[in-house]
Design a protein around this nucleic acid. Sequence first.
DNA 1: GTAGGGTTAG
Length: 660
Amino acid sequence: MAAQKYVMGSLFRKLIKPIIRPPLLIRQPNKFRQEEAPFIPFSQLQQIKLLESEITHTLDSCTSLTKIKQAHAYIIRKGLHQCSYIIAKLLRMISKVDVPMNPYGISVFSQVKYPNPFLYTALIRGLTIDGLFKESVLVYISMRKDGVTPVSFTLTALLKACSSQMNAHLGRQIHGESVKLGGFSLDMFVGNTLIDMYVKCGWLDCGRRVFDEMPDRDLISWTSLIVAYAKNGDMGSARELFDGLPVKDMVAWTAMVTGFVQNAKPREAMDYFERMQRVGVETDEVTLVGVINACSQLGLSKYANWVRDVAERSGFSPKDNVVVGSALIDMYSKCGSLEGANEVFKTMQEKNVYTYSSMIVGFAIHGLANSTLELFEEMVKKDVMPNHVTFVGVLTACSHAGLVDKGQQVFEMMEKSYGIKPSYDHYNCMVDLLGRTGRLEEALKLIRSMPVEPNASVWGALLGACRTYSNPDVAEVAARQLFKLEPDGIGNYILLSNIYARAGRWEDVSKARKLIREKGLRKNPAFSWVEGRKGDIHEFYAGDLTHPRSGEIDRDLEDLIDRLKLNGYNPNLSCVLYDVSDEEKKRILMNHSEKRALAYALLTTDDGLAIRIVKNLRICEDCHLFMCGASQITQREIIVRDNMRFHHFHDGTCSCHNFW
DNA sequence: GTAGGGTTAG
């Protein structure tokens, strides 16, 4: 019976809609309505309808404040400035055209005596887009005071505002209230926006609950949750949800690809992208940026060219797409190919701050300080405003090249000339810059002069410098702070113990190692990867001899070491920070993952080709020396990307000039 | 009106 009633109800609404829907002067169902709403005869209604469509049409082409003002004057002349529908349209145009909603939009709005819910909503949306959160909530409050019932639109606009303010409490309150008012509490739009809000505010569980309670879900609901899990580092749950999707569109696939990239799983990202292509899902700019980033993380050149090809074939050429182009620059430089990066940079017609910054960072991590500084000047000349990332690039370049004065000059100029306040990242670069040249005390002074409390990465940069300059005293100062800020950061304990080891303070070494054991922390294994002949990837872990061609690798490596020794190479035993015999130290050094990766590459790739090795930790002095020698003896170019920067080994020397 | 995105190093 009840069901029948409902069907009748909706049928009734459908039937009468064209007759009773007042197309213009929609009045609020409030107490004034009956007395004050003017009666419009049917003949006039027809005319007004025509006018309405004419004005709507004009509004669509409003592209500036002047045009909007003209349109508004016209609306007033025609006597339609009280019409919620028309004014709502005007407000929507105002937010599109970048005219401030406050005060112009508000003044237009306040001329309407009886605003309907859609007009209120247009104002709330407009204020939200302008970032005027408080104002949009105030409008909502006055809407409720006036007895105007919010519609589904209103709720999505408000929830979006709450999400941008990270105020899930208020969002929940507003939603709860609307549930009481009835009707649309969990319609798909509201539900999806609610999920998104909870997720963006970090209330993943609440988001999940909304998802579970929604009577109907669509792809958007699923994708929102997939993204939430991915951002939370839970790719397992993301994958589970994704697998459960009967129909997967481009956005859902892209969410997975990007999710893997954000969780530093580039191989899985590539894998998903390939699957996505196999099932014939289209690729757009966003997908491409994801794959390109995956490739940057992998750092292997064969994939780089393939990805660029895919981009071109999908119709996104760096020539006319600044986003794809900038991402490609970053990718090529992280794959060790500055030529590739440069080539893309030159072909790009539009260059923005991302483009320049990517190229600047590219030069910086390859140690080309002069090119970095030149490009920075060019960018300024062309009126592209640098941002904080640009300065990270410039400062990194100064740091890698030991240009202390220049770096300090740039650091000061940042705020004075460009109004960019130094952030942690910039302090980090400066500590690194001072620390690398041995000015540990100065670096410490800089940290102590910071206007905000120094964070872990700043202290970490100092600790790293203490390792290079074997300074256990300053190291202890940094370590004390780090242990407070990152009690579970294994790297800090290892660094400190290595610094003690260098200084021969073995008792302190064992104390530091005991601390690690007590905390149950596990060391990150060191590994390297290298491309095989067919673009396949081979991973080598330090001391792991399970590669199928381990026997040959061992043999060739010993052979290579013997040849290097004839050339004057002497294993640098001080790189082994264990208190063991020299023989054992030599064995440990030989099993460093980058050496094994090199031996494998020499074994399997053709002469004349550059060998590219990517590793997860910083290259040690002995391996650096070894690579220099190997590049001379074998006459192969060797490019190693460690977690800091690139080293190009060529004919016995390295591009970093042994300063890294 | 609702979902996926660009440049950061140690």
